[in-house]
């Protein structure tokens, strides 16, 4: 068996691909020194470094065939994607293009790069953050869990109100914590590892606790337990949402970029010939 590889597994392939890019740069410099034009070759190498990562998506769909481990494919995908950034700069000489079509192509490339790097960050950082919560929630079941927590909180408040006839807690709950329990909250704060949810909920519990009689304190304690669960559930919801959804930007952008590149190659070859 093999225990899961660490995130360091990306380092060696990235270093190799970057060194290869360095070799390409050195070659391009030499070609330019003798008044040659490396752009053609650079363009084709760049195309290859863009197409290679796209095969990863194809491999996912052809699961019936044995095309090797997806983790190897992802490592190559990341390494060649980073190489593509360097090759793109070499291919364009670091100049932002002036033509509209070329600007569209450059914008798409920038968008792919940005979403790819964001995706890599989420894959390297967010799983650990979820593990550190000490609980696991299946993403598709989270709405049900949130609904259960909301019902439990409302029931606790209702029980207290019916028992005492006091509306203090129910009024406060309706104006503050009910908003929190209604659905997942503090989405981006949870994505970036903040603690705003707990701070917010705690402030509202402190606000009511100072008026509390013993029975009310017990109710607030039970709501506090529900809040601590909801904090973790919301963390899972936010982080798992980002982990699942970033591909919804990266993959369509990549597809669009490949289409644009294909037409770019056709045009370049037509005019060159």
């Amino acid at each position: 068996m093999t225990v899961a590889p660490t995130r360091k597994r990306f380092m060696l392939p990235i270093v190799i691909f970057v060194l290869l890019c360095g070799g390409v740069w050195f070659w391009a410099q030499n070609v330019e020194t003798v008044l040659g034009d490396p752009t053609w070759i650079l363009g084709w190498i760049l195309t290859a470094s863009v197409i290679l990562p796209s095969f990863f998506n194809l491999r996912k769909r052809l699961i019936a065939f044995n095309f090797g481990s997806a983790s190897v494919w992802l490592t190559l995908h990341v390494a060649s994607g980073i190489a593509a950034i360097i090759l793109f700069v070499l291919h364009t000489d670091g100049i932002w293009p002036t033509g509209i079509y070329e600007q569209l192509m450059a914008t798409l490339f920038a968008a792919i790069t940005l979403t790819g790097l964001c995706g890599l960050w989420t894959q390297l950082v967010l799983p650990r953050r979820l593990t550190e919560t000490g609980h696991e929630y299946v993403y598709e079941k989270i709405p049900g869990t949130v609904a259960d927590l909301r019902d439990a909180a409302r029931q606790a408040v209702k029980t207290y109100t019916e028992a005492t006839g006091s509306e203090l807690l129910s009024h406060h709950y309706e104006k503050s914590l009910d908003w929190y329990f209604a659905r997942p909250r503090f989405f981006w704060n949870n994505v970036f590892g903040g603690n705003a949810a707990w701070a917010w909920a705690n402030a509202h519990m402190i606000a009511i606790r100072r008026f509390a009689d013993p029975l009310q304190s017990a109710t607030i304690d039970s709501i506090e337990n529900l809040v601590s669960t909801k904090v973790v559930v919301d963390q899972h919801y936010a982080c798992q949402s980002v982990l699942k959804r970033w591909l919804l930007a990266h993959v369509p952008l990549s597809t669009a970029f490949l289409v644009v590149v294909a037409w770019h190659i056709v045009i370049v070859h037509v005019y060159a010939s």
């Binding site: 068996m1 225990v3 590889p5 699961i63 044995n66 090797g68 481990s69 992802l74 894959q123």
Partner: peptide, 18 residues
């Protein structure tokens, strides 16, 4: 299936082992 369990092969981070 050639290559063994599909779940292991499909994991992009090699997180899943049998």
């Amino acid at each position: 299936r050639p290559g063994g369990p599909a779940c292991v092969q499909a994991c992009p981070n090699g997180s899943l082992s049998r």
